[in-house]
Structure formats: C-alpha cells, structure tokens
Amino acid sequence: MNLFRLLGDLSHLASIFILIHKIQTTRSCRGISFQTQALYVTVFVARYIDLFFRWISLYNFFMKIFFIASSVYILYLMKYRYRPTHDPSIDTFKVEYLVGPAVVLSLIFNYKFEFTEILWTFSIYLEAVAILPQLFMLQRTGEAETITTHYLAALGAYRALYIPNWIYRYFTEDVVDPIAIVAGLVQTGLYLDFFYVYFTKVLQGQKFELPA
C-alpha cells in the first residue's frame, strides 16, 4: 500500500458518502444516473468475487464489502426509497454500448483466460466507461447540484490517484499492471472536461453550468 492508493481509496469512499448524503439530505436522486450506479454494482460484483477465494488483507476485505454493500444500497435508494425523484427519461445512455465492448475486450486482452480473471478484466474495462451515462445526463441537463459535482470530483480523483500509485509501484515494487493502467488513464481522461468546469466554476463559488 502507498499514500497515493490510500488517498485514492479514501476519495472513492468519500464519493460514496457524498452521494448517499446528497440523496438523503435532498431526499431526491435528481441528476444522478441510475445506469451508472448499476454499472458500478456490476463492476464491484465482478471484481470482488475473489472475496470468496483469496485473502489479501483486512483493509482489502472490508473495503470490498463496503463498496458492494454501499453501491447496492444506493440502487435501493434510487429504485425504491426515492423512486418518484428518479427520471429515467433523461438517463437514456445505451449501456449495451459499454457492456458489450467490455465483454469482448476482456475475452481478448486479459492476463489469463480463466473465469475469475476474465471477470476481473471485464470489471476493469467496464469501470473505465461506467461514468459515461452520468456525464451524458450532465451534458443533457447542462447543470448539476453543487453536491453532485463534489461527488463526481471525488469519484474522478479516486482513479486519478491510482496513476501515481502505479508509477510508484513500477519503481519501488517492480510490478506493472498494463490493463489497469490503460483503463485507468481512459477513466481519468473522461473526467478532464468535468474537472475543468469544476475547478474553474464550482470551486470559485459559482454554480456548475455547462456553456450552452
């Protein structure tokens, strides 16, 4: 474990707390893409299946349990608890266009052609693009509640912090994970225009609004 990855995981943790806090305080999931949240549950279940057969550490164990449980809880909040505030008509990104290629790529580019390894690879590729329905919705509405932008900033920072973690591990532990690195760069790249608006507007106290 290194500081970058720890900060990344804490940023990921924070993003989930911010999202749950937003849904509970505003009693609504307005502006949140259900599809993106459902993709994250898929990512966590596919990636953390090794909970049943591989022990890494107490930290790893509890974080995996937390991420699966909290992301399922968010789906529950959106689908049942605050259902009336969920508007599927603006959450229309075709997730088949994300899941399909992730499946195909995981069958071609993987480290070992084994079931759990292909699931892990699929989760890595899917996570890289899982935010697209959310960004698509943001683009369509053209604005977002400030707390939602803090959620996205924390979520974007999580994988961005993994990049220095991979550089650090390359030089200190002599390990490299090309699949995770390429996917992580794509994932972080998708946030760049959001971060531009976030840092130039939201952090200057303005509302998050995309240029019309």
């Binding site: 990855r5 995981d9 990921h12 990636r47 090794d50 591989r54 890494i56 550490s57 790893n60 974080m63 995996k64 991420f67 480290y111 892990w120 993994y162 973690n165 390359y170 002599d174 390990v175 490299v176 994970d177 090309p178 995770a180």
Partner: peptide
C-alpha cells in the same frame, strides 16, 4: 518488469 500476479488493488 513482473506482470502482476495477484490483484491486490481495489
């Protein structure tokens, strides 16, 4: 550089 054996990252 050794490719990663066990996925120890989240």
């Amino acid at each position: 550089k050794g490719a990663v054996e066990v996925h120890d990252e989240l």
